[in-house]
């Protein structure tokens, strides 16, 4: 090999490997603020809203692994969310509100979701984009119909409620539980996307053919992405069920997937934090609009207003809010491309 016999040590190139890294200060600051929230406000509705935002944020981040990092558009992601939620609901409804059963729900969820993600992925991921999206839609409908028709177990769209362990019923405790879960998942997913495998996913997103001709087994990587996104989505489903203490077929709907899709696109795909931001904006907006509905009934149609907001963001902030911010920042301090070799 020409010229590479003596690898020149260049420490600077570490910094060049990825586009400007979002610094750690902002997330850590935000985390500290969130930790302080229950100390500042005793408002139950505020804590509930934030808890919901955390949980949907986890779900949206898992969707970003597919959409933003692997370039896969799925309409069936709620399947995994729903599996986690049903697993939790069914176990608690049939046994008792003991903490130990929670681990059964989590473990069972991981196992079932992994198997589902592998089977569905194996059957569909070889297909090209649009066909893949269509197949995921078909699977989503299939599982939705099963949940709907299997009333003896799921009670269909009416759903069923259940008791959860007493500690988790405390709003403040549960707020912290979901915040910790969120933080752990952020750390894990960031690790994952910066890992060698995660980097290959981004290569596949960029150019599947080139990745294959580098020797990467594209299907396997997409399966890994699907499994990890699925398992994380099932955690969100578990957390959701624990918060609502109620599960219905709503957790399986395509609408649920679309929610994640919207959150991710609003915040910025392929940024991970964008999905969180999207969840925050969506949650706050929903809340705010339903408050306004008391003032004027037009705001009851919050979905329409939200749709307009969404269209505005897609039109004026391609790349989402965070994506646009990062782009502005990276053009401002244009990467200085002077590299002194062998410093």
């Amino acid at each position: 090999m020409p010229d590479v016999s003596l690898p020149t040590r260049m420490h600077k190139i570490r910094g060049l490997l990825s586009l400007p890294r979002s610094s750690r200060t902002v997330p850590i600051l935000l985390l500290l603020i969130l930790v302080a929230v229950p100390l500042i406000t005793p408002s139950r509705s505020m804590l509930n809203l934030l808890t919901e935002i955390f949980i949907m944020g986890i779900f949206a981040m898992s969707y970003d692994i597919l959409l933003g990092y692997t370039g896969i558009v799925s309409f069936g992601h709620a399947l995994f969310f729903g599996t986690g939620a049903y697993m939790t609901g069914l176990i608690f409804a049939r046994t008792g509100p003991k903490l130990g059963y929670l681990f059964l729900a989590i473990g069972g969820g991981i196992l079932l979701v992994t198997v589902m993600a592998l089977i569905i992925g194996y059957l569909s991921l070889r297909l090209k984009d649009v066909y893949y999206a269509m197949i995921t839609l078909a699977f989503a409908e299939l599982f939705f119909i099963i949940a709907e028709k299997w009333r003896s177990v799921t009670n269909g769209a009416d759903g069923f409620s259940f008791n959860v362990p007493a500690v988790l019923q405390d709003r403040v405790v549960y707020y912290y539980v979901s915040l910790v879960l969120l933080a752990l998942i952020v750390v894990f997913l960031r690790r994952f996307i910066e890992s060698p495998t995660g980097k290959v996913l981004q290569a596949i997103r960029e150019n599947e053919k080139r990745a294959e001709f580098l020797g990467y087994d594209v299907l396997k990587f997409k399966l890994i992405s699907n499994v990890i996104a699925g398992v994380v989505a099932s955690f969100a489903g578990v957390a959701w069920a624990l918060q609502q203490r109620f599960v219905s077929t709503g957790v399986m709907t395509v609408d649920k997937t679309i929610d994640a899709l919207l959150m991710t696109t609003i915040g910025g795909t392929g940024t991970l934090y964008g999905a969180l931001l999207g969840s925050g904006i969506t949650g706050m907006a929903k809340n705010w609009l339903s408050e306004l509905a008391k003032v004027h009934p037009i705001f009851e149609r919050w979905y329409i207003i939200f749709g307009l907001l969404y269209i505005g963001i897609v039109l004026f902030f391609p790349g989402g809010i965070l994506g646009t911010l990062m782009r502005i920042r990276s053009t401002k301090n244009k990467p200085s491309v002077t590299i002194s070799a062998g410093d």
Binding site: L6, P7, R14, F192, P196
Partner: peptide, 20 residues
């Protein structure tokens, strides 16, 4: 290919080689 928990920059020889 399949390493999901280490940071890719830990494999510094890859970047060195790529730079060369």
């Amino acid at each position: 290919h399949y390493q999901i928990l280490r940071h890719h920059r830990k494999y510094s020889r890859f970047s060195d080689q790529a730079m060369a």
